[in-house]
């Protein structure tokens, strides 16, 4: 499709290595960020299992609580929590790049946009905690 300049035969092309994402810290951070979505999915499944246990009755709810106190479940959830928080932080930090706002002709600074997201996060978390507890 592209027309090369006639030097085609002698061009040296490097193949992208399979572990390209280990070559730079920023690439690795990117892949971790993307894989955090798997733990988001796990968290959502965990919450659905909880909802199902609650709906099934007090005994099932208690046994769900006991199960979630098992060491391996706690470990998975601790790791999941760390990665879910990482997802949230990286999401809010890049939001200003995608969301360009202008108020009265002047651009809203990036840290204000990010700050608004963090504020919303704090508010929603407080409300949810208050409802649940």
């Amino acid at each position: 499709m592209t027309e090369y300049t006639g030097l085609y035969q002698r061009l040296y092309r490097t193949r992208v290595p399979i572990l390209w994402w280990l070559r730079r810290r920023s690439y690795l951070a990117f892949v971790v960020r993307e894989l955090s979505s798997v733990f988001v999915a796990w968290a959502v499944v965990f919450l659905l299992l909880l909802a199902h246990a609650v709906a099934s009755g007090p005994r099932q709810y208690q046994s769900f609580l006991a199960w979630s106190a098992a060491p391996w479940v706690l470990t998975v959830n601790a790791v999941a929590l760390a990665l879910v928080v990482y997802h949230a932080v990286t999401w809010f930090n890049v939001a200003p790049q995608a969301l360009v706002l202008r108020v009265r002709g002047r651009r809203v600074p990036a840290r204000v946009v990010a700050g608004l997201h963090y504020g919303l996060w704090a508010l929603v978390s407080a409300v949810v905690a208050w409802i649940v507890i």
């Binding site: 959502v44 919450l47 609580l65 999941a80 929590l81 879910v84 949230a88 996060w121 929603v124 507890i133």
Partner: peptide
């Protein structure tokens, strides 16, 4: 999905995944 999960999942997982099972709350 990214926005909603970023807002809701951390607190829910903190409570039901760690705080309540560990008895912290």
């Amino acid at each position: 999905g990214g926005m909603l999960s970023a807002l809701l999942v951390p607190v829910l997982l903190l409570l039901f995944g760690l705080a309540f099972p560990l008895g912290l709350l």
